[in-house]
Design a protein around this nucleic acid. Structure first.
Lengths: 220, 220
DNA sequence: AGGAGTTTGTGAAGGGGGGAACAAACTCGA
DNA sequence: TCGAGTTTGTTCCCCCCTTCACAAACTCCT
């Protein structure tokens, strides 16, 4: 609330486009570290991340000056700084609602665990699924959402239900105290201010590809 | 190649940002049509699609003048026009490579079929999966990719393999004639010019949410 | 026929992001 | 210590996109 010196920390307002790329850089740095690389230039890291090196340097400059001119970036150090900036130096508890085909896949996805997230509960409204165990986690009734959120301090919820149920699930999540939602259902969620929603729509991605494909075919 | 009159068709160069929203509008229009709505204003449609109404009107204006001032848009007509523009008035054959947890979910996802895509083959390099049937489709060996692409005229491929295999799969897809790839593997694909790649990375989406969540918690 | 009300399509302004280019800063070798 | 080579951090410029605001065009009612 109080005005802060803008130079206190270099990146008090990191552009959204930069934030979306930080996880990509982090992934590339992990790969470099595992390959035994101790230092890398912006050119190398940019290549591994699939971006322009000038863009990479500008992105990193928003976090601070973590490189050394004439040398490059220390892989482990930069990796830690980015992880800290994103907030994945410690695990975030996550709940997944809707244990259909997609919910199963998400629950079993090892990438969450290794990148700072821990699935603490699987919920489904269908009583027939109760007791089913997926990836060592038992499916619990949707009605237990609020208790689980409270007990585990969950802030992030994943919606993997059919479209018709998605808004109700989101409402219940917000009510329970969740303030970030990742939505896989093909529907637009409306949530109060202060709640973030990101959507992943599989068929939309394909449709975008189809548009360009159609253009190619017709000699455009 | 030959120069065309720019007024022949209003939108010979539709902005990328607009293209990414057209599928959202299409989905909203389908929902409106199913609800029995014959006509809608830009305001209504924008609400259903979760965007600003001015943005919606500008987006649609790139396709042509399909609305009527003082009235609004004819739902069925606009729906057809958008579907035609995207290129989903007829089905696109699609192959999915990598039938793990995610591949299973994608193969079973009914949204593809209902939105202009038809999964014609499931491929996996693991011989143990051969013959397995998912969503009425038998899993075939990865080596059959080129034959299948040729026989079905496949232009779009989905990569649902682990990260280490993704680049090899993409290379084989390009070699087989595929020119649009949807990549679910957490890795950067390099492909020749003329091939489109879109990526969906589940953990990146969560990390972006985590960043904002961290900011909320620390009173930023 | 004409005016009031409604809604589309578009022009203009402002903000954000991408990329080239360069100065600052570091290493290395003599 | 000094110069050559390397690489970062930053500035500048341009383009795309978003949003506001309004004229054009349509309907409906009198």
């Amino acid at each position: 609330m109080t005005a802060r010196s803008s130079s206190e920390s270099p990146g008090r307002d990191i552009p959204e486009a930069t934030i979306a790329r930080l996880p990509v850089y982090l992934r590339a740095l992990v790969a470099l570290a595992e390959a035994g690389t101790a230092t890398c230039s912006s050119e190398e890291l940019a290549l591994a991340a699939g971006v322009n090196s000038a863009k990479l340097r500008k992105d990193l400059s928003h976090l601070g000056s973590y490189g050394t001119r004439g040398v490059g970036y220390d892989v482990d150090y930069l990796r830690y700084q980015i992880a800290r900036e994103i907030g994945v130096t410690q695990d975030w508890p996550v709940v997944i609602v809707g244990i259909g085909n997609l919910g199963h896949a998400l629950a079993s996805y090892s990438g969450f665990r290794s990148r700072g997230f821990r699935v603490v509960a699987l919920l489904d409204a269908d009583p027939a699924r109760r007791g089913e165990v997926v990836a060592d986690i038992a499916v619990q009734p949707f009605a237990d959402l609020e208790r689980i959120v409270r007990e585990h301090g969950v802030a992030i919820g994943v919606v993997a239900t059919p479209a018709v149920a998605a808004q109700d699930v989101a409402d219940a999540m917000v009510e329970a105290g969740i303030s970030s939602i990742l939505n896989f259902a093909p529907s637009v969620l409306s949530v109060p201010d202060g709640v973030d929603v990101r959507k992943v729509d599989l068929s939309i991605e394909l449709q975008i590809l189809a548009y360009h494909e159609q253009r190619k075919a017709s000699g455009g």
